[in-house]
Design a protein around this nucleic acid. Sequence first.
DNA 1: CTATGTAAACAAC
DNA 2: GTTGTTTACATAG
Length: 246
Amino acid sequence: MYTGEGSDRRQGELYKVDNGECWNTEFIYDVIEFLKFVTLGLDVEATTPEHNGTVSYAKLIRRALLSTTGDGLGMTVQEIYAWLEKNTTKVAYMSQNWRGSVRHNLSLNMAFSSYLRQPSKRQGGKKVWEWRLEPFAKKEVTLRKGDRCVKKILKPSQVLKAWMVEVLMASYTLRGHHSAVSNASLFRIDICEWARLTRDRKLDKFVKGVTYLDTLRGIHSQDKFLFEKSTSTVPGRERIAQLTKT
DNA sequence: CTATGTAAACAAC
DNA sequence: GTTGTTTACATAG
């Protein structure tokens, strides 16, 4: 992620980012502004067991998944239960149905996705699903608050929007061009296309107009970055279609 | 209105 | 019975 500060906003300039890609300057600025917007006013996350009773399930699940060693290794629901029981104080005094709440969070929150774990010989080919953190939810974002640098993680529901930005970036990368998006209809095109390419079920539902009331509400009406802020580098529909073909 | 927690119906395994 | 999806409702801020 590009984290530098700059005063010039010359258009068309390309920056190299962490993964080696080149991004359009204006797009980068838009992403940064967006992330700032998204992370304003977040509370400090409690890190010790004595204080994590007030931390949300989603954050604790995130911490559980971050605690796994090995790249891409996730946790089964049972492993998540066990981790929460061992490493937090929250579940001890939550309702009897806290496991249901955990599953509810896993299912509803786009920060979490399930994958089929490679079957081991011991388990005799039985299907085992594991939950992983989406890359966007692993990140901590460094923000400047006054003269201090504060590290924050994104709230799971807010980070959904950041994830949308990732979707856009991925789809642009796929097409081999880079640009800011500021137009609702173009955004929709991108989301539809990405849902099709990735066969993302959650995204697919989103495209089909099923709203996730708890997490997706308001994304159209409220997201000023994606739908109201205007930039001048948005390619036309024809151009997009052209690029998509090749 | 947003964020979060809880309950429950229901399907698939 | 477990796991996962979804809707509905409650409450705090």
